[in-house]
Design a protein around this nucleic acid. Sequence first.
DNA 1: CGGAATCCTCTTCGATACTG
DNA 2: CAGTATCGAAGAGGATTCCG
Lengths: 219, 219
Amino acid sequence: MTRRSYDQYCGLAGALDLVGERWTLLIVRELMTGPKRYTDLADALRGIGTSLLAQRLAKLEADGILVRGRMAAPAASMVYKLTETGEELGRALMPLVLWGLRHAVPEEPAEGVQVRAEWSLLAFTHSADPATLAGIEATFEFVVDGTSAMLRIEGGRASVVQADGSTEPDATIRIKASTVAAVGSGRMSVIEATAAGRVEIEGDPEAVEALIVAFGSTL
Amino acid sequence: MTRRSYDQYCGLAGALDLVGERWTLLIVRELMTGPKRYTDLADALRGIGTSLLAQRLAKLEADGILVRGRMAAPAASMVYKLTETGEELGRALMPLVLWGLRHAVPEEPAEGVQVRAEWSLLAFTHSADPATLAGIEATFEFVVDGTSAMLRIEGGRASVVQADGSTEPDATIRIKASTVAAVGSGRMSVIEATAAGRVEIEGDPEAVEALIVAFGSTL
DNA sequence: CGGAATCCTCTTCGATACTG
DNA sequence: CAGTATCGAAGAGGATTCCG
């Protein structure tokens, strides 16, 4: 294991020495939406190859970016979860996510490209003003191209969580990945998307109204 | 050229498809401090290999992140410079730079590790409050472990520029790379570093005072 | 079934040498 | 100065196998 390094005394070079290798930042992205098992990761990161995933996880653990833990009682299996350092890295990646959305992601997902609601929603966790979010406490289920994820707003912060059957959302929103991308990248406002009938809403109208206000004001 | 892609409809994955390969973000970092020639880049990016550098530059140009241009009259040579998209990418990288400084860069540069004043100063361009910077218009030369770069403050923004002989700084500051890193990462305040005699200052005391206030208040 | 190690092939990287 | 050509070494991807 000849740890390849840029050998530069620089924050960016140091960061890339730790997390610049192929797949590594995508593993971090997966864990930004909550702890995951090995197979959850392998499933989301199509093409990674089981061996490389194990290697990356071991290195991330050694570098203090994630920890390995055991799940609660019944499903006594291993989970990977970000440390505080890892969470901080996740927050530092958000501007890059938005840049990618504006400049690297096509309007429509190409044939054969993987789509996940979790990834689409990532753009929203840092693009609303905390002051506007304060006061809202609600959970929204987004169904994006057949996949589903929850956007949880609480304590002035929005976060993406995995859609497990256990939590009941206040509202369910059906929307195409391309519409989420258009809104997240600033090409279209929430208001415009709604007006254009590109958003299908079901559930508590009051919660939805708050959501639109929160994100409509910044997007 | 079998463009390897993650094939995921996600801002981060898209960004990494464009700029996630080895050396690519470091090339962007180099250009964040102004246009550079091929040999300037090859010199700063020790170990890259001339062939790979050429390949990366061609791809970055094709993707609209940089443009190739010709320098002014006498030195009729080629320069590479960021497009607006590239500049935006540079700004999106700043949180990652700071994360790296806090979690990936050792207190002291290890033996054989490259040190450049430009890299050290990068941490400061986004860590002062614009309101505090407003009103300052000055140029500071930092001499860091034998290398030199300018921090230019103007219009409420701080930026790193290359130290060419042509501009005369208002003050010159001699400081070790490890001290810059300690301050940039928040482990030490500007005030502490100055009090500890780790900063050697020469030049206009008024400008230096303003600098310390601007960065002392946030760090 | 979750969590890997092994093996093999292919791609990418790094270094040196060479050219307009 | 600004690259191209080449080649051995390292890394990635896919399939298969193994273990608890």
